[in-house]
Design a protein around this nucleic acid. Structure first.
Length: 286
DNA sequence: ACGAGGTCCTGCGAGC
DNA sequence: TGCTCGCAGGACCTCG
């Protein structure tokens, strides 16, 4: 079975679960167990930046969980593909401590833990200016009220690369990873290998709707869990039961019954699709 | 600008 | 049964 990555819906779910547990808490005793997840900050600076600070806001940007501290500094955790963020009442057990990357005792007696088995996740600590520069390089939020079809069209228009690769490019569009790219393209009945600038207006409109629908439905289902991902309360998501293509290669299309195919020819990542519904002509190695 | 490929990391499962 | 090895993946990087 393929292993999912926390994408936008999973991080949104985590953030919603963590927000009431973390907001207004003091970070009393931060501990870092692996420094290879740090990006642009040393262990010493990270811990010094966290110790004694109060968490004033918890929110999501793209696939990042962002913790705004009372110093104006932001702790940013991107959970990579196996990252989990949890709050324990009291202290976690030794078993729960396994694979812990960052833990922090909080005022009120609870403990925050970022756990990441494969440590492909990233931790950043950015001041106001650093954050502004960082977020400016990420594309627009597809679920934002002011994100329109024209914005998606503009993001696709300048690229001859495969549309699947383009919608997964975080600099063009925020939060869409492999699972939801596959699902959105299937639901929009678009060939994932189609060059992005070759989509006609009706295809762009369908893709716009399918991206927003699939992300919204996944949030409502608390995300997709195959093995690693857990919500902020440790529960499993349930969107895996509503997937149409991801992880279903060799099985019948839910829409037309044709056998779903899989290829790695787009950016080396697993692309699952229906030849018939998505009118795919040229993908090989499937 | 674009594609291809390597790097990070660990658990798992296929294959011998 | 016990081992090795390839694969999974996002983001970032270099090379051609």
């Amino acid at each position: 079975m393929n292993w999912p990555v926390p994408e936008l819906p999973e991080v949104e779910t985590i953030v919603r679960d963590l927000r009431p547990e973390l907001t207004s808490r003091l970070i009393e005793n931060p501990r870092l167990f692996y420094s290879d997840v740090l990006y642009g900050v040393t262990s010493r600076k990270l811990l010094a930046g966290l110790r004694g600070r109060r968490i004033v806001e918890v929110f999501r940007r793209a696939k990042h969980a962002v913790f705004l501290l009372d110093s104006g500094v932001r702790l940013i955790i991107q959970p990579g593909m196996s990252g989990v963020m949890l709050v324990y009442r009291g202290s976690p057990s030794a078993a729960e401590q396994r694979y812990a990357v960052l833990t922090a005792e909080l005022s009120g007696g609870s403990t925050f833990m970022y756990r990441d088995v494969r440590r492909l996740g990233t931790i950043l600590l950015l001041d106001e200016q650093g954050w502004r520069a960082y977020t400016a390089r990420i594309g627009p939020e597809p679920l934002a009220d002011d994100f329109r079809v024209a914005d998606l069209a503009a993001r696709l228009g300048g690229s001859r690369q495969a549309v699947k690769k383009v919608i997964m490019d975080q600099h063009r569009l925020a939060g869409v990873g492999n699972i939801y790219a596959n699902e959105a393209l299937f639901r929009a009945r678009i060939d994932p290998s189609l060059p992005a600038d070759r989509l006609d207006p009706s295809q762009v409109a369908r893709l716009y709707r399918s991206i927003r629908t699939v992300l919204s439905q996944a949030i409502a289902s608390q995300g997709t869990t195959f093995r690693d991902y857990r919500t902020g309360t440790g529960a499993r998501g349930s969107f895996q039961f509503r997937l149409h293509v991801y992880g279903r290669e060799g099985r019948p299309c839910r829409r037309c019954g044709a056998t779903l195919a899989m290829t790695h020819s787009i950016d080396g990542r697993a692309t699952t699709f229906c030849w018939r519904c998505q009118a795919v002509r040229s993908l090989n190695d499937a």
